[in-house]
Computed example of a mutant assay.
Amino acid sequence: MTDELDLLKRDWQKKEVDLPKLSYSDIHKMIWKKSSSIVKWILTISILEFLLPQLLYLVPSMQDGLAFYENIGVSNYLLIASIITYIIAIYFIVQFYKRYKEISVLEDARSLMKKIIKTRRTVKHWIIFSLCSMMVSIFIMVIGVFLSDNIAEAFPHLREGLQKISPEKLRMTLMLSIGGFGTFLVIFMGGVYFLLYGLLLRKLHKNYRELKQLEF
């Protein structure tokens, strides 16, 4: 038994000698490259997230949705909210691009750690903004339905059938439907952000911990 253990130890020591020795500089470069790649993914995803909803306006069924907003009197408010959202979204995309350019420059470990912290903070603010903008749009629609004088006019194709339903009941049903769907959408998108951006942030945090160990 002792002979077998000695043989195993000698075999392991032999393998250990053959393993490549990584220097401080090598490890630092590996972490830097991984961090740069992660931030590039964050930038790409944020751009896609901004562009994809715009393509929905090309879908014919979206025109009915725009008509609905017009009929309940919230189209102008949603337009203003959308313009503000676009401006802030573009600001965040520019910030992600800056974070990517900053982190793409190889510097010392302390500087890279600061940039990782800055990037993670920017992503968290982006997530909060995105979810809040959804909630604002939902709130505007619910208020629009509540203040609408004749809610049945918002559904021209179903006008005759809806005349049989009392305006109060129709209004309440529509408000609950919009509120319920909106709540589900915010929770769903929160989950998507948690999985997508959360995965990237966890990887960045791991790189941060490795840099901290390397530096200290």
Rank of each mutant, 00 (worst) to 15 (best):
D108N: 06
F188T: 04
E153N: 14
F194H: 14
R99Q: 08
S130N: 06
D149F: 08
M175T: 02
Y193W: 14
I117M: 13
R121N: 14
L147C: 14
T119K: 01
S111R: 10
A154R: 00
I138M: 09
L158R: 11
L158I: 09
F96Y: 04
F155K: 04
L131I: 05
V123N: 04
R159K: 13
S133G: 04
S137Q: 11
D108Q: 04
T173Y: 04
L185N: 04
I151N: 01
K164I: 10
V145N: 10
L162A: 01
N150P: 10
Q163N: 15
I116W: 10
T122G: 03
M189A: 07
V105G: 09
R159I: 15
I103R: 02
I165F: 06
S104E: 10
M172Y: 11
H125R: 13
G182E: 07
S177L: 09
L106C: 11
V186E: 14
Q95V: 06
Q95F: 06
F139T: 03
K164V: 13
F146I: 05
C132Q: 15
H157Y: 15
A154V: 00
P156E: 11
M172P: 12
Y97S: 05
L112Y: 09
I128A: 06
E107G: 10
Y100L: 00
M189G: 07
R121G: 08
Y193Q: 12
I138P: 13
L162F: 02
P156D: 11
H125N: 13
R110W: 12
G161I: 07
R121V: 08
T173P: 03
T119H: 05
F96T: 00
V136G: 05
